[in-house]
Amino acid sequence: MKSLTKFMDSFGAILLAIIWIAPLLFAFWAATHSTSDAVNLNLFSPWTLDNFRVAWNGAPWLMYFVNTFTLVTVILAGQFILTTLAGFAFAQLQFPGKDYVFILVLMQLFILPEVLIVENYAMVSRLGLFDTILGVGMPYMASAFGIFLMRQAFKGVPIELHEAARIEGCSWFGILWRVYVPLAKPTYLAYALVSVSTHWNNFLWPLIVTNSPETRPLTVGLSIFGAPENGVDISVISAATMMSVAPLLIGFLVFQRQFVQSFLRVGIK
């Protein structure tokens, strides 16, 4: 009886796992076979890399990759600087008005940047940042969520270390840089993984703000490449899709543990 339930458990779990991974496997299979073989599900047809060649020549992918890479780097750098400074101020400094400002920051948590697309678009245009990578990244830099996360991390630092550094004559900035930042390393790592995978995958805002191949990230490039008007066949779309998810997917499979831990650490505060 007991072994039967155990068998049923394994069976159900693996069945669901296969269903869950099937779309990805099908796309991989379609990408590596000719269109007619993919469409007719000829399981024993020969493998080919032609689809990748066609897809790669069909759009400036290298540029898209560079754009996405630049975008996530710019956002992450901005987020690290801004959330570190603000998080430190909220966690360790006493000054009038602090609590009110913190409530304002928390309010931003439920005003999603996605919802404010119309006015943010007007703002980015006003600042002359339309169709620039900085324009895509800027609304995400002062992340209320990141500030909250850093504040929690800095609050956990023992005050004795802070006092000791101050007695040694360390400046405020020195204390932040030499005591707090090194101790919050796991939080930075977790935040970085979540931020990079969020912005690597972001679509709606970059779609609105970019207008040329020189700024367009992968997701927007992929959506244009796969648009039905372009009449690209399904194997080639699959190849393009596999190409654009490959870096993140491989990174995930290699560092799976860190990814899951990071999402957890950032999710449950």
């Binding site: 779309p23 995978s197 690597w200 995958n201 699959s238 990814f259």
Partner: peptide, 15 residues
Amino acid sequence: YFTPTVLPMIAAANL
């Protein structure tokens, strides 16, 4: 189970 989480929504739609 976790893999779809790291894919962009656009890629998921293509799949």
